[in-house]
Amino acid sequence: MLSRTAAQLYWMSRYLERAENLVRMLDVAHTLSLLPQSRSAAAEWSAPLVVTGVLEDFTARGTPLTTGHLIDYMALDQANPASILGCLKAARENAHAVRGQITAEMWEAINTTWLEARERQQRGITSVSEFFDWVKERSHLFRGATYGTLQRNDAYCFIRLGTFIERADNTARMLDVRAKLIAPEHAESARDYYAWSALLRALSAFEAYHAAFRDTLEGRRVTELLVLRPDVPRSLRACCDEIRAILPQIETRGSDNDPGRTVKMLAEKLAIRLKYCNVDEVLQRGLHVFLSEFLDEAHRLGESIRTAYLETV
């Protein structure tokens, strides 16, 4: 497959996944803001701004950091390229360029999403949770159309690769925001429960938690679930397992000159580390340190995908 085409497929799905993840992040902020004792929440709310690198831009506007302003800015603000609207636009533009490589169902899903997003932008958001649900639904629809209609070829591989690279990054960052709750010096409070449950719900992992542990909510177990469990679709382990399984399916011309060797090595290392690690080791290292290291390695993996497949010389 042409490198340019692979890059467009990969970024199409990364942007769509990013839009969905932004919603999940905003969802946590929104849920917590509804709690009565949410005083120091600002640090939490700024997470979506920090993660997308627009904190400075937001601060420069002088708008107070409230959930309302945050959601307005991160959802459909045309001036914010990192907004959900911006992601949907970028996803649609990439899809447009690879129209011949995706199915009609996929194209219609992504194109309609963009057209509706523009309408919603005109109308303004009336119900926050309805908007969140809509974005997630559109993302599910596209992924379902991909799963149900696209030939299992390189295009499929690069689309899936984009999804899991983006998702792993997002889960790590969302968990990292909560890392201080599990630090040794942290004094547990009743509010922790809500923080963990909001996180689990935002990552659609609340049911999985109860099925896996049948026990009360606790940071250590949440960490195990979101970092190490292979059967939770948004966990780091699950994402890395997917990436590791996808890479060998990308067509090569003989193993001698496989441009993806470095990528595969990094992906194997990442997956194996998560497979043979246990939660005690993670917490001993410190959750924040562990996740920072993970993000660095995931970043390196992303870079190696770029140089091996997407921007080849």
Binding site: M1, L2, S3, R4, A6, D154, F158, I250, E251, T252, R253, N257, D258, P259, G260, A308, Y309, L310, T312, V313
Partner: peptide
């Protein structure tokens, strides 16, 4: 497109994911 092609050692190549 032009950007997908390059010239090396007297031949034209496409930039592809398999090299």
């Amino acid at each position: 497109e032009g950007q997908d092609l390059f010239v090396r050692d007297g031949f034209v190549y496409m930039r592809t994911t398999a090299g």
